[in-house]
Design a protein around this nucleic acid. Sequence first.
DNA 1: TGCCAGGCCGGGT
DNA 2: ACCCGGCATGGC
Length: 231
Amino acid sequence: MDERKGRSKQVGKRIVKEVYKTLYQAFGPRGWWPGETPFEVVIGAILTQNTSWKNVERAIDRLRAKNLLHPANLYKIKDEELAQLIKPSGYYHIKTGRIKNFIVFLHREYGSDLNKMFREEMMFLRKKLLSIKGIGPETADSILLYAGEKPTFVVDTYTKRIFSRHGWISNQNSYEDIRDFFMGNLNIDVKLFNEYHALLVYLGKEFCKKEPRCKECPLKVFLNKKRPNPI
DNA sequence: TGCCAGGCCGGGT
DNA sequence: ACCCGGCATGGC
């Protein structure tokens, strides 16, 4: 690699770490994921696809009330009943299929035992999750990180929005590019990846909704700093 | 009232 | 390899 790229890489590394430090100091630990059990996290990860968490909570509460937050119980339920229960989370027919796809996969591959599934090597399991129809990269990484406590970085719309608006990534970078960018510039650390993603979501939700780079944004201190060149 | 929310798939270029 | 329409409810 040439010298310019090398320097750019160092800038990228510094930015990624400093952004984390800044957000953590501003907001403190977020305590993610807002779910009680690993299985609940998996279901939440599917239900929250392009959906506000508030609506997902409603759906989860309805499942919990029927004691359905367990693989064996969901395995038995009829599609139409599940669809009605998760209705508040939107896209409920699509998501019924996606939940069922995962449940059938878990049953077939691991005897409905989530702990057994998470004993797999991370990247091997990631590939298997991605092969399930309805589980894309963000959902897979959310499951691995927040339910399985595996060291993978979750990239979502907030991550892309915040980092591209600052010029730290470009909007043509793929999901995997961006994931590599974060993982390559941070220590491989479950706790760190957990907090980082949660902090970005918090920032995106609470500060960047209407006015990008608003006055109260903790990241405004980065506006005048050197920026890395394309990942 | 219209737009958005912690994506992903399938078909078309 | 991208690009786009579709999927749907609830909050502001």
